[in-house]
Simulated scan of single mutants.
Amino acid sequence: MGRRRGKGAGTTYYHKGSKRWCAELSVGFDHHGKPLRVRSYHKTRREAEAWLAEQAALYHKGLLADPSKLTVGEWAEQWLERKSREIRPNTLDAYRRELGYALPALGHLPLQKVTPSHVRALLDDLAKRYSYRTVRWVRQKLHVLFEEALNLEIIHRNPVAPVKLKAARGQGQSKAARSLEVHEAAALLAALDSHKDRRTALALRLMLNMGLRVGECLGLKWQDINLEEGTLTVRRTYSHGRESDPKTPSSVRTLPIPYSTLERLKQYRDWWQERLKEPPPPGMWVFPGNDPARPLEYNAPGRALRRIVERLGIPTLRVHDLRHSYGSHMLANGAPLELVAERLGHANATITLSIYRHVLEHERKGWVVDLETLLTQPRAKA
C-alpha cells in the first residue's frame, strides 16, 4: 500500500498533457479517505515552486481553506481579490455587482457541492425579476468563477457549463447603435448652441464631432486642450466618481479639433475666464460639476440629450450613438478605416470593422464595375 502524503506536504512535477509545471499541495483527506489536494499549473518550475511555497505557508498558518469546506462566497472573494490586480476599478465594480445577484442564493453553499440544478434555479428566479441581459451577465460571471476553480482542480466540473439561457421572444437582442441622419445631426448641433447648460452642451458636441466616449469627455482637464494648435489629448477617463486610465493604451490619443468646435471651445474658455476672473487653471476639469473638485455627474449628458431630442422630435438617441454617428459619417465620407480606428481609440482596425461593417457594405454597393462595358468602350489613342 502506498505511503500517504501528509497534510501540508507538496510536490512539483512536469505535466506532459498540459506541457506545464504542476504544483500540488495535499491538504488532508475526505471522510472516504480520498486525498484532498489543490493544484496549479505554471510555465516554469520556479513559478510552480514559488506558488507551492506560498500555499504551504498559508496552510500551516491556518489561512488556506480546506477545498471541501470552501464556500462559493469565500471563493468569489478570493477570485475578486486576484482580479483587482488585473482589471480596471470600474470593471471590478461590475464583476462585484453581477456576482452580487447570485451570492445571496449560492454564497453559503460549499463550492464542491454546487450542482447545475442550483444554478438553474438561481437563473430562473432572477429571470422573473431582471432583464435577460442582466441574467446573462450573471451566468457569464458565474461560469468564469467556477471555471477557475475547475482549472485549479478544486472542483471536478463546472456546474454552470450545462445550464443554458434562452431568451424569451423579444428579449436578448441588444439595442443596435444608430447613426444620426445628416439633417438630425444639423438640428442637434443647432440646439446645443442654445442649450442653457454650456457644460453639457459642449460635452455632447465633443462626443458627436470628435467621437469621444462619455468618460473620456468628462475626464478632460484644461491642460489636455491646446487651443492654439487646435488639438485635444485624451489622457484619462472619469466614471461614477472615479478617475482612471483610458480603456486601452490606444485610447490615449491626440485629436485635431474641428474648426467649428474649436471656436466654441475658445468661447467656452472665455466664459470661464469671466466667471473666475482669470484663465481656467490647467488642472481644472473642463466640465466641472456642482462640486468643482469633480466633473459633471456621469449620466448628466445623457439626461440632457434625451430632453433635447424629445423637443426636436428626433427618435430616441443614446449618448453612445453620438460617437457611433461620428464613426459612421467618417467612413461614409471616405475616411480610411485605419484613420477612423485611430480617431476612435480602437485597439485595432478589426474592432472598427466589426462595428461599422454595415456602413462599409453600403459603400461597397456603390462600386459596381461592368467589365463588359469597359471592354467595349473605345480606347483613347496615345
Rank of each mutant, 00 (worst) to 15 (best):
A191N: 08
P35C: 03
V252F: 12
G107Y: 06
K43G: 14
L337K: 02
K16I: 14
H362M: 05
L58I: 14
Y13H: 13
E243C: 06
A149Y: 14
P89I: 12
E86T: 10
R242F: 12
L322G: 07
Y298T: 13
T352R: 00
H32C: 12
M207F: 11
G211S: 02
L52S: 11
V138N: 05
E153Q: 13
G8T: 02
L331E: 02
L111T: 13
E310W: 04
R264P: 06
A57H: 13
S117A: 14
V319R: 00
A304P: 02
I155N: 02
W51P: 08
A167Q: 13
W79T: 06
A57K: 15
M207T: 06
L344C: 01
L25D: 03
L202G: 00
A48C: 10
G8Y: 01
H362E: 13
P104H: 05
T11P: 01
Y259V: 07
M1F: 03
T352Q: 01
G107V: 04
R88C: 05
R85E: 15
D321T: 14
E229L: 08
G172A: 11
Q377N: 11
L227W: 00
G215W: 00
E229R: 11
E229H: 08
V135P: 04
Y13R: 05
I351D: 05
R3C: 02
Q171R: 15
G215A: 09
E147G: 06
T71V: 10
Y238A: 03
M284N: 04
E81H: 07
A102P: 09
S325Y: 03
K43Q: 15
A203W: 02
A347E: 10
L103S: 11
W285S: 01
L99S: 08
R379Y: 01
L375S: 10
W51V: 15
L63A: 14
P295W: 02
T376R: 08
K19M: 12
K164W: 15
R303L: 08
W271I: 11
E49A: 12
W137H: 15
L145V: 07
D245M: 04
R136V: 04
A168K: 14
L152R: 15
L142A: 09
R357W: 00
S251W: 00
G241T: 09
M1G: 06
T316Q: 08
Q273C: 03
T376G: 02
R178Q: 07
Y259Q: 15
K266H: 07
L70H: 13
R379I: 14
R357K: 10
H143P: 10
L63M: 14
S174A: 12
L165V: 06
N333K: 11
G100S: 10
E338N: 14
T11R: 13
A201I: 03
R323E: 15
